[in-house]
Design a protein around this nucleic acid. Structure first.
Lengths: 394, 394
DNA sequence: GCCTTTTGTTCGCGTAGGGAACAAAAGGGC
DNA sequence: GCCCTTTTGTTCCCTACGCGAACAAAAGGC
């Protein structure tokens, strides 16, 4: 109903912002829905045919879209050209883990073109940067160059200050106050952006996964190191005043309960953790992928009781989130998804009736490519915000 | 940094939206900051002097602003005309309570021009509408007419469906599924909008009270009928997918605790209620205004213990809100403010460190006019969204 | 009294988008 | 197979908006 018009740069030219905003709008549609007939773009955006002609021409000139011959038609009337996002424009995704680095090449629409997992025991930052830079060079070593690279998106398991791309703390990797985007930029000559991995996982699910098409979404992800999450409201990522919103891991689910490393007691993260569940079914940390299956098939009554107890606690956190945020869906990922699938409990029960209407609890839909897509979204998001302003600088 | 350009109506004319957006922007500044020199408007909005001249001229022509003689100058240079919001443009506020109806006349900037409290034991809707309509006629009975009335804003103690202004349920007044805005429109010939009273109280505090100037805000209000609240994120009211976000009253603060009418157990609203506090210090419901004073001055150790217990429970709800939303401030109103002032407890304690940084707990700043201002904001909000589009129809 | 500073005003320019008229490309009926 | 209808692309002109330059106006300072 209402569209948003983002201001391009600091540049003046308010009439110019119109074109920038329209370029952004159209490219966003292509990114989200893939190849689309020009006539449909015209309808959806609600501008005149002549204007849309100019916009598509601009996008073609920028090399961001291509108009191909009309697809097979079904109705009468002159067929409309199919506008597709450029297939040679890519973002590079990097996700450092404790024992490996994931590196990917992702195009428009969350299309993962390449995905490599490079094992390494060395998590020191210079080493990781070097390894990643070499891998990236390898991926792009076509002659003539096959891809136009927009930049690098980094999914970091830790706190990241978005404004300048500095890793404040990534405990598992032993990084503190590292200007990681600058390091990657220097090593590769590409622009780089970084954000928290859980946030990016949500972003991926929201755009192309379980949250596709939803405007209001709560995301909860459970991993070895705790519980993270994020919130999308009215189609936009909730950041909070300091950028630290979405800490569902520290929702109180049992006042006076287990002490949490945050200094509180009874936090969701302290009360419901992956290690306890793994132990109950005899799995190691590396086998976390099998958790859902084991929890479901186990015939041990102790396991059933544990699932029941933990999912009740998760239910309290979900309930609070529903009452406060009234989203369309709650998406569970990681071991929380396993817990949810193993339990018969309706996690929305006992929420205020009006907030339960039409709420759905879903499991994450994107598999191992979740983070590659999320990290790439970080880069594509920059492009989509102002397509004409993004490119000339690269 | 980023300005928002709102789409006017369904009307086309994308270049026209620019002017509409700029009119909106400038009028919003006048509404929020009062009379402002034109040169300052030019600086703040960041457009050229010539454009601002046209915008101010448009606003004057619409009768929404007036440019007066230069104020007393202090620096060199040609003095800039002072642009003021029109002082004859008003919204009418209506707030039905169980034993009375509040009716007000409010101008730009939350300026309450008139405020009447009409006692009535009859809460049946037709009776309330009739009473209000008569009072409104009386307030506007100047000849020639003194005010230009934008419309009526209704602050309802109950659930309201914003989209069509239907009261879904107002238990205390005994209303169910009432098309209240239509009824008021028919009775007065004015346009009407309705919303939940707690939401409007927050809106008032956010614009002109304790939350003035803040972009991220959590609001909690405690009244005789329970605990309500709302959230402002990135300067915008959080509505949720169904419009029922902000139900802090049903945050779980003691799992398995007191049964709540919502069907759950241990909700904040069930665990912390006004009646219990009033009883402890020997006040009646009508004397709720004295609560903060009595709680503070009481020397009864039982009262102190009660305050301690209840504020600890409130703290859990606040903590959850902080972790999930990371706001700049939490504003407490009604008896929650009384409880907060009587307690020495830091309500932000035990939140995740990063979410506590720079968070402030404040008490509501607007007094009895809070709801009059909030209800008027409902109407002014419509005007400000698209000044040129709003007026011609009225 | 003149200079500087700041702001309002006027005028012409560039750009974006709308709309009408026409052209093009498909299907459908006879 | 031809003509009509439908839908869309294209071209051209018009309008609205905002910018910027040049000039005018109104204040303070020396």
């Amino acid at each position: 109903m209402a569209s948003r018009v983002a201001v391009g740069g600091t540049r003046s030219g308010t009439t110019e912002q119109l074109r920038r905003a329209n370029l952004s709008r159209v490219l966003e549609l292509l990114h989200q829905h893939g190849p689309t007939p020009r006539s449909e773009l015209t309808r959806v955006v609600g501008i005149s045919r002549s204007t849309m002609a100019g916009i598509v021409a601009d996008l073609e000139e920028l090399g961001l879209a291509a108009e191909t011959e009309p697809a097979s038609t079904t109705r009468a009337g002159r067929p409309s050209g199919l506008v597709s996002p450029a297939d040679d424009v890519v973002a590079i995704s990097v996700n450092p883990e404790v024992d490996a680095v994931h590196i990917g090449l992702v195009g428009f629409g969350g299309n993962v073109i390449k995905h490599a997992r490079i094992e390494t025991p060395d998590t020191r930052l210079p080493s990781v940067v070097g390894l990643a830079a070499a891998t990236i060079r390898g991926m792009l070593a076509d002659d003539p160059p096959r891809y136009r690279v927009l930049g690098i998106g980094l999914a970091i398991p830790g706190q990241v200050r978005i404004s300048d791309g500095v890793v404040r703390q990534a405990t598992h990797l032993g990084w503190t106050e590292e200007p990681i985007t600058d390091l990657f930029a220097a090593a590769t000559g590409l622009r780089a952006w970084a954000a928290n991995a859980a946030t990016l996982a949500m972003r991926a699910e929201s755009q192309f996964g379980a949250g596709r098409g939803l405007r209001d979404l709560v995301y909860l992800i459970g991993g070895a190191s705790g519980i993270g999450g994020g919130v999308i409201l009215d189609g936009r990522l909730l950041t909070g005043s300091g950028g630290y919103a979405g800490e569902f891991g520290h929702t109180v689910v049992r006042p006076g309960g287990v002490a949490c490393h945050c200094g509180g007691w009874g936090c969701l993260e302290a009360e419901v953790d992956q290690a306890t569940l793994l132990e109950a079914v005899g799995l190691t940390a590396a086998e976390a992928g099998l958790l859902a299956d084991r929890l479901t098939t186990s015939e041990d009554p102790a396991v059933a009781a544990l699932v029941e107890e933990k999912s009740a606690l998760l239910g309290i956190a979900v309930r609070n989130a529903l009452n406060i945020l009234n989203p369309e869906a709650v998406v569970l990922s990681g071991f929380l998804s396993a817990l949810h699938r193993a339990s018969a409990r309706d996690l929305t029960e006992a929420s205020v009736a009006s907030s339960r209407e039409n709420v759905e609890v879903r499991d994450a839909a994107l598999g191992v490519e979740q983070l590659m897509i999320g990290a790439a979204e970080l880069v594509f998001g920059e492009l989509l915000r102002d397509p004409a302003g993004f490119l000339p600088a690269s």
